[in-house]
Amino acid sequence: MDELFAPPTYAWNRLSPKYRTLRRLTSLLVAPILFSVPAIVVGLVSGEWWISAILWGIAAVIAVSRLLLVDRNWRSWGYVEREDDLYITHGVLFRTLVAVPYGRMQLVEVESGPLERAFGLASVTLHTASASTDATIPGLTPDEAARLRDRLTELGEAQASGL
């Protein structure tokens, strides 16, 4: 984490390690599953199973390379609540630091898909009047997500200002 994206005077809050596990799992599974469909179809239809093998090979390469990146990506995430704004940073190649003033929050959204639920994870998204505000924190424990939601709503209300 370099200077440019560090939060002023605070340390980043990190995502739950379970999120890394989840990402590892999806990295391992998604590409092979996606590639298996055409691979099997091609193999069954044409009998040319070597094409399928190549496809599986590509899938394996993708899965491994993504697996290797998961850790860096997971480490790149961070968020911190300051007195007036919420800072979120993420990205390995393309890095982003977004700061959202509490007074500008329109709503706070907590989401948890089936996979995330299985891992006991949830994500929190802040919406402002601007569509380009990209403030999602994935991979939080449900407790932390609920705490964040309540805290943000409370702060948002206290500092709310008209559009």
Partner: peptide, 27 residues
């Protein structure tokens, strides 16, 4: 009217120690 502030930096920009600052407004 500032909705949020973003710093963004791509890999090439990092080489040159450059970055973009977005001041977000409604669509």
């Amino acid at each position: 009217k500032t909705q949020s502030v973003r710093i963004e930096q791509g890999p090439l920009q990092r080489r040159l120690r450059l970055a973009d600052v977005h001041v977000d407004t409604p669509k």
